[in-house]
């Protein structure tokens, strides 16, 4: 089984559209994991069957027992995240501010502070409209630790992929270069980058590649909206050559991308004659590399 993660650095480059198109091409031998847990959108296209989500706990959060609290204020004084404040004579933790360090728990003189596990979101495993399994998740608002939820989605997906005997697991990653991205890289066989021919796209690609380089991961890149600015597209290609990033080819600017999303379709469904050859070629190139 091979695990391929799709990343973009910048948001809005067409990463999820590319991901769903590739999944469609390989629909009989693939499993998809949506690891953009902060803004998971693939299920809107894949329309998986409705299944109940599984609660996911990670990390801890402080909780003060008002009965036991003697309002000495030590916790509030020591908390580096300003998460504890006085409210009607008792101290209280603001969950959105708490980083779960447990410092207050250790120093409370009357042991009034508990550190229960924190529910940070849900994950789902369901059969998609196209037949393959989709594992996706929803991070609670303002929750930290999305990296851990990404790790969970991936491990569930991997197990299921093995069980189903599928050869490919496709991971839709988060934008950015922070913790969910770093977490989505563990155990990956190949990274597919989707960028766009804009200066923002190039700048974000450079930062993302610096990160990937730290993990010594092999990767290839697709330049979306390549004709919107041919000169930036060629700068991107120069960068790819310099860094030895394989070129998976260009995709021209197309209204089919937003149209397909609006209709809840993959690009293949939007215009089969136009897009099937494009993505079959891209997939073939990826398969040759791994």
């Amino acid at each position: 089984m091979k695990e391929i993660v799709i990343l973009s650095g910048k948001g809005g480059t067409g990463k999820s559209s590319v991901c769903s198109a590739l999944a469609h091409i390989k629909k009989d031998n693939i499993l998809v994991a949506d690891c953009d847990v902060d803004a998971a959108d693939l299920h809107l296209i894949m329309a998986p069957e409705n299944v109940p989500g599984v609660d996911f706990y990670s990390g801890i959060i402080a909780e003060i027992d008002a009965e036991k609290c003697i309002a000495c204020g030590l916790c509030a004084q020591k908390c580096r995240f300003d998460a504890i404040s006085l409210y009607e004579g008792k101290y209280r933790v603001e969950p959105l501010d708490c980083e779960g360090c447990a410092y207050c728990h250790y120093i409370c003189p009357v042991e009034a502070i508990a550190i229960p596990q924190q529910n940070i979101g849900n994950y789902f495993q369901a059969e998609s409209r196209l037949g393959f399994t989709l594992v996706h998740a929803r991070l609670n608002i303002g929750a930290e630790n999305s990296g851990k939820l990404v790790a969970k989605v991936k491990s569930i997906a991997k197990e299921q992929c093995k069980k189903e005997g599928k050869d490919f697991m496709l991971v839709d990653g988060s934008p950015g270069i922070g913790c969910p991205v770093i977490s989505s890289l563990s155990g990956v066989d190949y990274v597919v980058l989707v960028t766009e021919a804009t200066y923002s796209g190039l700048s974000d690609l450079e930062r993302l590649w610096t990160l990937l380089d730290m993990f010594k991961l092999p990767g290839a890149c697709i330049v979306n909206k390549a004709d919107i600015n041919p000169s930036v597209a060629s700068e991107i290609r120069k960068f790819m050559q310099k860094k030895k990033i394989a070129d998976l080819g260009d995709i021209p600017y197309s209204e089919d991308f937003p149209k397909a999303i609006a209709m809840g379709r993959t690009l293949i469904e939007e215009n089969e004659t136009r897009w099937r050859p494009v993505f079959e070629k891209i997939w073939k190139a990826i398969e040759e590399k791994i």
């Binding site: 902060d38 803004a39 608002i141 303002g142 929750a143 930290e144 922070g178």
Partner: peptide, 10 residues
């Protein structure tokens, strides 16, 4: 702001 609704956006 950063995109998303996680801790950095908040």
């Amino acid at each position: 702001s950063p995109p998303g609704t996680a801790c950095s956006m908040m």
